[in-house]
């Protein structure tokens, strides 16, 4: 056998070793382990880190539950999903974590949910050449989320990128694609569970360490499943075609439409609160590079 050949990207290996994680349930597939320990125990946060890494690309988030149809036949049993799942060996995070400073800020050039700092950080990083791609959560007319790759600020004029959508978004599966495409680096904005997922990916796989250069975390108390929250909002008289902003302020869910506002206590949404959010204590996205949120800032930010 010939030994390592030179490539343009460094040394190539012809023999290598990969560590596999321990199975909590022996003699069961890794996905079965994930299912038993995280999904069935209602710990799953729908961060979709497992979806992003699964080599067979068959883990899906359907009907608001992470699942792997026919995993008995299709699972390759590589263990990548349990290696990256932030809730598999869950070590709850809380508090503020280590920080350099906290401050109130507002972007001069962008409009966003609050101070548009989420948007500003990503575009500044692109302008500085730190990253060549940023991931944003976009939405359609019906407020269904989709993930958008931004590569320059000219794209922003056309798209309603900023602003909070209180619905889960498939950010991490897109992050993997962005990492594969990116030459320089990728920036991502996400909820605390997603930030933990990104850190797990970085811990386990060098390609994510090398490419994900900026991780912005959003303050988050809860997120919702589209089907459930949209049904509820329609019942409350929200017309999606007129909806321009959703927010949670002082314990109230506020849906601002072009002609009126619908307000109600967030506590009314308790029945549809995702189980994964119930166990989470990480409000500030402790593991992020920068955390952004509006709690504690004076009005106007």
């Amino acid at each position: 056998m010939k030994m390592a050949a030179e490539t343009e990207t460094g040394k190539g290996e012809v023999e290598w070793e990969v560590k596999i994680p321990e199975k909590k349930l022996k003699d069961r597939l890794f996905f079965e382990n994930l299912k038993a320990m995280v999904i069935d125990t209602q710990m799953c946060s729908r961060c979709l880190t497992c979806v992003s890494i699964c080599p067979s690309e068959l883990i899906v988030n359907e009907e608001d539950i992470v699942d792997f149809p026919n995993y008995e036949d299709k699972c390759l049993d590589c263990g990548a999903c349990v290696r990256v799942c932030p809730r598999y060996d869950y070590k709850p995070k809380s508090g503020l974590g280590d920080y350099i400073e906290f401050t109130a800020g507002q972007s001069k050039r962008f409009k966003g949910q609050d101070g548009a700092m989420g948007t500003e950080f990503i575009f500044s990083a692109i302008d500085m050449g730190l990253i060549d791609r940023g991931l944003f959560v976009d939405r359609d007319e019906q407020w269904r989320t989709s993930v958008f790759h931004v590569r320059g600020k000219e794209q922003l004029e056309k798209l309603p990128l900023g602003g909070t959508k209180y619905v889960f978004a498939d950010i991490l599966p897109e992050l993997k694609k962005a990492v594969m495409f990116s030459k320089v680096g990728v920036g991502v904005v996400g909820t605390p569970c997603m930030v933990s997922g990104v850190r797990k990916l970085q811990e386990e796989y060098p390609v994510f360490r090398e490419k994900v250069k900026l991780v912005i975390g959003l303050f988050c108390t809860e997120n919702f499943h589209y089907n459930e929250v949209s049904k509820y909002l329609i019942e409350k008289g929200v017309d999606f075609s007129k909806l321009i902003k959703t927010d949670i302020m002082k314990g109230k869910f506020v849906a601002t439409m072009t002609d009126k506002e619908v307000k109600f206590k967030v506590s009314q949404l308790t029945s549809i609160l995702p189980s994964g959010c119930n166990v989470c204590t990480d409000f500030t996205a402790v593991e992020s590079d920068v955390s952004v949120g509006s709690v504690g800032s004076v009005a106007g930010f």
Binding site: T9, E13, V14
Partner: peptide, 13 residues
Amino acid sequence: VCVDRGSCLACKV
């Protein structure tokens, strides 16, 4: 050849 052994999932594909 493999150029990033650390990022190998060992999925065996």
